[in-house]
């Protein structure tokens, strides 16, 4: 029987003793070859969901099937089909990068005569060939993440779980990792389940996005569809002088709903982009002195704000999810 490279969950729940419901009845369907971005702030339930889907944590209730296999009753079959790079790249500082790959190959029962070549291939792919025989304790955070990804790919999994893979990475390492993940999905047809707290990451990489908050999925769809659901763009004006803010607010609130802005006054336009000309005319008529006027298309943060009443931007930082 050919098993699909899909991820499915129904009413999945994880409740910790003396703790909250970290995951509270979520439903998921991720198609084969799709990159699914699981977006949410720290403590939203992203990592707990990944732990359940990768068979590391049994669900309290509900069911989940990964690669066509039940995560509770068919754990060995699930594990042989998935690769995973978890939030903490737990590596052994006493071993080299190459030795880690060799160990992973043994754990996955890769034929002995393939192990060395596969390790070389992956080390080259993640740019660690030169550092391959150095002990991992001397690796930078980015190198550890890349080795972690290489280890997840040793047995050519058809489904890949990446739990906040770019948290704490510099821009260059982050871009390189995005490029590799994109290539895996588009060229190799790997299904990717990616958790992130970076809006840009979900926007750039994901075919579809699920937004999780307090253990619930509050929105799901393609990034464009989610943004279109919010629909209206935002116009943000910054006053030239210190006293102009009240005047700007008085004018702008006539054109839509005020939204939080750190720099000036922002309003979600009721009339959409077409309302911008009216805004400019009204500001001019009122004699407002405006230093800066910007039109923002809806972002995933706007989606998050609309669905949860909170902004995700600046919420995450580099802290780990305390779950």
């Amino acid at each position: 029987m050919d098993h699909p490279n899909t991820i499915e969950a129904e009413k999945l729940v994880r409740e910790f003793k003396k703790g909250p419901r970290a995951v509270d009845g979520i439903d998921l369907h991720v198609d084969a070859g799709e990159i699914y971005g699981f977006l949410g702030p720290n403590g939203a339930g992203k990592s707990t969901t990944v732990l359940m889907l990768t068979t590391l944590l049994p669900p309290t209730a509900g069911t989940a099937r990964v690669g066509g296999y039940d995560v509770v009753h068919e754990g060995p079959q699930v594990r042989s089909r998935i690769g995973a790079a978890l939030q903490e790249a737990a590596l052994d500082g006493l071993m080299t990068g190459r030795e880690h790959l060799r160990l992973q190959a043994a754990l996955q029962a890769l034929p002995r005569n393939e192990r060395a070549a596969r390790a070389d291939e992956l080390l080259e792919r993640v740019g660690l060939t030169e550092a391959a025989d150095r002990k991992v304790r001397g690796y930078s955070g980015g190198m550890k993440r890349r080795l972690d990804l290489a280890m997840a790919l040793v047995h050519r999994p058809r489904i890949l779980f990446l739990d906040e893979p770019t948290t704490g990475l510099d821009v260059q390492s982050r871009t390189a990792l995005w490029s590799e993940v994109g290539r895996l999905a588009r060229e190799d047809g790997v299904t990717v389940f990616l958790t992130t707290q970076y809006l840009e990451e979900a926007d750039v990489l994901a075919d579809r996005v699920g937004i999780i908050d307090h253990g619930h999925i509050v929105a799901e769809g393609t990034p464009d569809a989610l943004k279109a659901e919010i629909g209206r763009p935002t116009v943000e004006a910054t006053a030239s002088g210190p006293d102009g803010r009240a005047e700007l607010t008085e004018v702008l609130e006539r054109f839509g709903t005020l939204v939080p802005s750190s720099r000036g006054v922002a309003v979600r336009l009721d009339a959409g982009e077409a309302g911008l000309a009216d805004v400019v005319r009204a500001l001019d008529a009122k004699g407002c002195s405006v230093a800066n006027l910007e039109l923002h298309q809806p972002s995933l943060d706007d989606v998050f704000l609309a669905k949860t009443g909170r902004s995700l931007e600046g919420h995450g930082g580099d802290a780990s999810e305390p779950e």
Partner: peptide, 11 residues
């Protein structure tokens, strides 16, 4: 956390 890697990698 290395044991978690073993638990995850070992079918």
């Amino acid at each position: 956390g290395f044991a978690r890697r073993l638990l995850l990698a070992a079918p």
